[in-house]
């Protein structure tokens, strides 16, 4: 009789990798293709569609700038998102798409916590206006987490405690994934250079290259 049969596994009760992957996949699957609501950000009135919202603005808030629709491809899903023109991509992901992985730490392009991958490049979503992202292909940590291909990387991150409070961690992980997209076999120095824009106040730095290097080795071996 195997040990697994002997003892009921308590670990299932808390968040395993599989559970995190399933939650992330669910978040990706439920990204709305069109705005769930056409809510006036000034007075809260719910309009039936964008035209109705524009009409409402013309009548009620003639001096204000009307929210716009931007088309994004987020984690493989085409989404039309209602935004105010000054919104950053980070805010759009959080407030309109329910994606909390791009964290806002500095809000000024100085920490990397809000990193996402846009058209293949790691970018800081707090410094990019969502309005400028029309037609862009955006990958967030939720998309990476939902993709079994990256299980090994995430496992290594967790095995090595490449996080303490964990607030900066998704930003590091996205940057690491962007590195591996381009260079599946980086050296430690290349890992450090790629992560140079990410700040971890808790000081987990050595753990990231350790986790990335372990993951690349395992991925090269084709196993977990």
């Amino acid at each position: 009789m195997s040990r697994g049969d002997q003892v009921k596994q308590g670990g299932n009760m808390t968040l395993t990798h599989e559970a995190a992957q399933a939650i992330s996949a669910d978040k990706v699957a439920s990204l709305p293709a069109t705005p769930a609501q056409y809510r006036c950000p000034i007075c809260g009135k719910i309009c039936v569609n964008h035209e109705d919202l524009k009409f409402h603005y013309a009548n009620e808030h003639p001096d204000a700038i009307v929210p716009i629709i931007v088309k994004l491809n987020v984690n493989g899903k085409d989404c039309e998102v209602l935004i105010e023109p000054h919104w950053t991509l980070q805010r759009t992901l959080q407030f309109q798409l329910g994606l909390t992985g791009a964290k806002q730490m500095c809000d000024s392009g100085a920490c990397g916590s809000c990193t996402v991958i846009m058209d293949g490049r790691a970018v800081l979503s707090c410094t990019i206006l969502a309005a400028e992202c029309e037609g862009k292909v955006i990958e967030t940590v939720e998309g990476i987490a939902a993709n079994p291909k990256w299980k090994t990387l995430i496992d290594s991150y967790c095995r090595w405690d490449a996080m303490q409070c964990g607030y900066c961690t998704p930003g590091f992980l996205v940057t690491a994934k962007a590195l591996l997209d381009k260079n599946p076999n980086p050296t430690e120095e290349e890992c450090r250079e790629a992560l140079a824009g990410n700040i971890c106040i808790c000081g987990t730095y050595p753990r990231h290259s350790q986790a990335i290097l372990e993951a690349t080795m395992k991925m090269a071996e084709g196993g977990e």
Binding site: T14, L15, T16, H17, A19, A20, Q21, I23, S24, L99, T100, G101, A102, K103, T140, V141, E142, I144, A145, I154, D155, Y157, C158, R159, W160, D161, A162, M163, G166, T169, P170, L173
Partner: peptide, 16 residues
């Protein structure tokens, strides 16, 4: 190298 019980939530951005 024993993962924290909420490490996956933190790494994947699920943690709010």
């Amino acid at each position: 190298n024993l993962p924290g019980r909420l490490s996956y939530a933190l790494a994947t951005g699920i943690a709010k």
